[in-house]
Simulated assay, not measured.
Amino acid sequence: MTLEIHCCPNCGSKEVSRNGKTRHHKQNYKCRECGRQFVLNPAWKSITKEQKELMSRMLLERISQAGIARVLQVSEDTVQRYVNSQATAVKKQVEVTAKQKNPLSVQMDELWSFVDNKGNQQWVWLALDAQTREIVGVHIGDRSAVSAQALWNSMPPVYRQCAVIYTDHWSAYDSVLPSKRHRAVWIKIVVVPAISSASTVLFDNEYQGLVRKSLAFSKKLENHLAAIWRFVHHYNANLQL
């Protein structure tokens, strides 16, 4: 049966035929011109560019996916698909302002986190420029010397060549950092927000998804990594404003 009253949302053709029912028992239609299948007044609608931008900001503010879905009046599946798509798109490399080969100071530390359950620990290793407060190195992994090496490798070359590095007394640093420029201290007094295991000021204030008493830990490693990297880029970009 050909219907003249409905137009294809894809090509605008009126050559539309009934094509059974959807799993929600709504009448399905098919365009005889382009083959597009559709229903009238669909419950699902694609999210707009403005909604995506707002969704990204709400994710940075630790608003739950269910909360985002309610605010934007979209399904939780839509929010999850967006989160998954961003996990693959986010750049996993630090972006910092250019530095001259002058004396630099960097503070390194590790922050405990987990994915899905506390047995799946994912340590967030960070390096911060003591003067500019930029995050200049990031790695997420275990708490071994391999991760300390990955943090060191993640920093721009000028920091690896010139910076004095302040850390705690965690042994993993000793086998990786240049001994002449490594300063292991009991109390960190560099002028950057403390991110030690005792006081996670930086993450507590800027990205509450990593607060220890929070329930906002990811259940998927890719999304956990993406959330951290979104914070890193957001934090550094705001420092430069």
Rank of each mutant, 00 (worst) to 15 (best):
T88A: 04
T88Y: 03
A89L: 09
K91A: 12
K92T: 14
V94L: 12
V94A: 10
E95N: 12
T97Q: 12
A98W: 03
K99N: 14
Q100W: 06
K101W: 00
K101L: 02
P103G: 11
S105C: 05
Q107Y: 08
M108Q: 11
M108V: 15
L111W: 11
W112I: 00
S113A: 13
V115Q: 11
D116W: 13
K118W: 10
K118S: 06
Q121F: 08
Q122S: 10
Q122V: 13
W123V: 01
W123C: 04
V124A: 12
W125F: 02
L126G: 00
L128E: 11
D129G: 02
D129N: 02
T132N: 05
T132K: 00
R133G: 01
E134M: 04
I135L: 13
I135D: 01
V136D: 00
G137N: 03
H139I: 05
I140M: 09
G141C: 08
D142Q: 06
R143M: 05
A145K: 10
S147P: 07
S147H: 06
Q149A: 10
A150C: 12
A150Y: 09
A150S: 13
L151R: 05
N153Y: 05
N153I: 01
N153C: 02
N153F: 02
P157W: 04
V158Y: 07
C162E: 09
A163Y: 08
V164E: 14
V164T: 13
I165K: 00
I165L: 09
Y166W: 13
Y166F: 11
D168Y: 01
D168G: 09
H169I: 01
W170P: 03
W170I: 06
S171I: 07
D174I: 08
S175G: 10
V176L: 03
V176N: 00
V176F: 01
L177N: 04
L177R: 04
L177A: 11
P178L: 02
S179A: 08
K180P: 02
H182L: 13
H182W: 15
R183G: 12
V185L: 07
V185R: 07
W186I: 15
W186V: 15
W186K: 14
I187Q: 15
I187A: 11
K188G: 14
I189D: 14
I189R: 13
I189S: 15
V190C: 07
V190H: 04
P193K: 12
P193L: 10
P193A: 06
A194C: 05
